[in-house]
Design a protein around this nucleic acid. Structure first.
Lengths: 135, 135
DNA sequence: TCAGGAATGTTATGTTATAACATTTCACTC
DNA sequence: GAGTGAAATGTTATAACATAACATTCCTGA
């Protein structure tokens, strides 16, 4: 784990991280909670949200605002502001980090005199697999 | 009102639309509800959400997913998938519709074999005015 | 070993959104 | 102008998401 940067990957944080990764699609905080408690645990929502905050700060997990749900980061440790492609059929999420998009966006935004703190770019559509296999 | 396209701008829808527009910043559904009910009304959340759904379908209002809130559309009647610039200080939102951004995004997305149904592009940052007037 | 901050536990509550079903309203036809 | 069917609204309840506030435990380093 890339957490030699003095942040502590404690047990609950690790459990939440595993749970997020074990889901193929974005998972809600309360779904994470259910899975943690499935074998007798008794964690509270706060614990999950705190772990998620930590994991997001450390670039291990992303929040999908349009779904109120969370996914594991495909490229932990890298810059961090990607674009997410969400398949409306299978729910899978692909993470992009396209330079042209970022450049065009940065240009358009600064042309309006804004500075950028953070970006939410979430595209809903259909993935290649689902387009092929369903009408 | 541009609703000669056979959709009915009923009273509650008009009230919700006015309320959204009367707010300078994105406003939550329950805040809309409070304002509607401020002078004795007794509307329920459903009424507001239904009105908002209608207004969004008709391109009069946008939802800001990262804030769970709503803003009036700056260019009703036009295409519809913009980019939103949200000032973290004053809360104001500017709506963009930048062709380069859309082009770059469409290219990146289709390169992955995805098709686009809808886009959520929300940039948080600081507006020119706030940058000038606060440290 | 003990002091202080970080992390977690605990309880309660706030906020956002929808389900499900009943009733009313409206435009249209006869 | 009465009937009818779809659209809109009303109503009640609850689901789903998120945080506040304060107590306790745990880890680390002096």
């Amino acid at each position: 784990m890339c957490l030699t940067r003095k942040s502590r990957l404690t047990d609950i944080r690790k459990q939440v991280l595993k749970t997020v990764w074990s889901s193929h699609t974005p998972i809600g905080a309360y779904d994470i909670l259910s899975r943690l408690n499935a074998r007798g645990g008794k964690a509270a929502p706060m614990a999950v949200y705190r772990a998620l905050d930590f994991l997001m700060e450390n670039g291990l997990v992303h929040r999908i605002a349009s779904l109120n749900a969370f996914v594991g980061c495909a490229h932990p440790g890298e810059h961090h502001a990607g674009q997410f492609l969400i398949c409306r059929d299978c729910g899978n999420v692909a993470e992009l980090d396209n330079a042209d998009v970022k450049r065009a966006l940065a240009k358009a935004v600064t042309a309006r005199g804004f500075t950028i703190d953070s970006e939410v770019i979430e595209i809903s559509g259909r993935c290649p697999h689902c387009r092929e296999h369903t009408p």
